[in-house]
Design a protein around this nucleic acid. Structure first.
Lengths: 247, 247
DNA sequence: GAGTGGTCTAGACCACCCT
DNA sequence: GGGTGGTCTAGACCACTCC
């Protein structure tokens, strides 16, 4: 035991909450690799004994560290130090001829979740001026090295047939368009943070409130009447994006 | 009481956790304005009585809803429905001659927190290839309509004197540069989500784990050797940013 | 079967806010 | 003083995983 029980109790009385003290000590141990990456932490009850606090306080600290992206827990298995592995979405290259694998720095695997007719206004909450009539809606999960990193919902304005929708469902949009010889003329992005939606929670295995990067997009193409819009959500520790502007 | 006690207990036994049921019902009431904006919710003990669950379960649901940005609580006062008010940072205009008030759609008020010498590598965690030698570091809080919306840390490469650092501390960087006749030649951005840092928690009054938008920036100027870099953090419900690309 | 994390409860103390 | 949310505790049951 690296700190005696008394220090934690004393700390509570004069300052930060107990669970914050426990969290700080656990953070220190993770940063200094006392608990190495992918290794299981001692159990909650063992930590409670060690720190001289109740198990609930330890669990509160562990839960906060999960939301900070340092830990992940599985019932019946244990609590583990997360391996930090982050991908970058580079928008500077999004309009040139490189394929997505190169652009993203990894080979994505895409799971088509559904192709349905939905009213955008019902799905993309909080976005003003959306169509209230049903459109083709493609939902997919994107993986990198078998780790889920994006949950994507996209709407297609024109009916190019089921084969094209399947293509959209199995590729990133830029690739799908390239395959049918369509170019993107204009890209509008709104970038935002958000707590994980229920769908992202399910796809990416994160809990309610987990910080995620949200990108709402709108692609205009060089084919009359064909445009895409939608949104894609990524856990904060899985993806970031870069943009460069020169003047 | 809009649902009888039994329905919650039954729901627990056959599916979602109890606190998720409570959260869903509270969300419904907030969305349908049963609990209007800025109005206090019934107390945790009253809700516990109403739903027939323990107070801890209600508190767990309330805490989750705080992290989702729907509620805010103050000890001794109550729990309130948050007024949604969000600002947009438009990067498309960042290089033209409009002043920041117009660009942002609001008149910012800026609190200078500190001007110090710091090693960037010590402050901007997780960024590779940062100088390990101390540089001028300006920390500030930015408010819109008296609501804190950004916590900014910036480093200045050259020593232009204390008056200039004060200028940086009291204005957004673009404005500070304009005032001394310097133009930005190149802007590099990394946009990311993150749980609130301790500093952002303090400045913006959000709790640990609150989803925030993180923008790391690097500005090159037309004055030799003068560049800025740093990062700015905003609670997810206070700011988003937009970018448009044409090709 | 033993250990794990996830959940739930009852009961308690504190600091804070209002009147 | 009385109410509020924030915190902490002891104790319990469950589903899950591993042996």
């Amino acid at each position: 035991m690296s700190r005696d029980t008394g220090s934690f109790v004393d700390a509570m009385h004069g300052g930060r909450p107990l669970h914050a003290e426990v969290r700080a000590e656990l953070t220190r141990r993770i940063d200094s690799a006392v608990y190495p990456t992918d290794a299981p932490l001692p159990s909650a009850s063992a930590l409670a004994r060690e720190f001289g606090v109740s198990m609930i306080t330890v669990k509160r600290a562990l839960k906060d560290l999960q939301n900070e992206g340092l830990l992940t827990s599985r019932a019946g298995l244990g609590t583990f130090v997360k391996r930090p592995k982050k991908f970058v979405r580079d928008y500077n290259m999004s309009l040139n001829s490189m394929d997505d694998a190169q652009r993203l720095g990894f080979e994505p695997r895409i799971d088509l979740l559904s192709i349905t007719m939905e009213a955008p206004a019902d799905i993309l909450a909080g976005v003003p001026d959306l169509p209230r009539d049903p459109m083709h809606c493609v939902k997919k999960a994107i993986y990198a090295d078998d780790v889920p990193i994006m949950y994507d919902v996209s709407f297609v304005s024109a009916d190019l047939g089921d084969a094209f929708l399947q293509l959209v469902g199995k590729h990133l949009i830029y690739d799908a368009l390239t395959k049918i010889g369509v170019k993107i003329r204009k890209t509008e992005l709104i970038i935002d943070a958000t707590p994980a939606s229920p769908e992202t929670q399910a796809v990416c295995g994160v809990s309610s409130g987990y910080p995620c990067l949200l990108r709402r997009y709108r692609y205009e193409t060089d084919r009359e009447g064909l445009l895409f819009f939608g949104q894609v959500e990524s856990p904060f520790d899985k993806l970031s994006c870069t943009i460069t502007m020169e003047s």
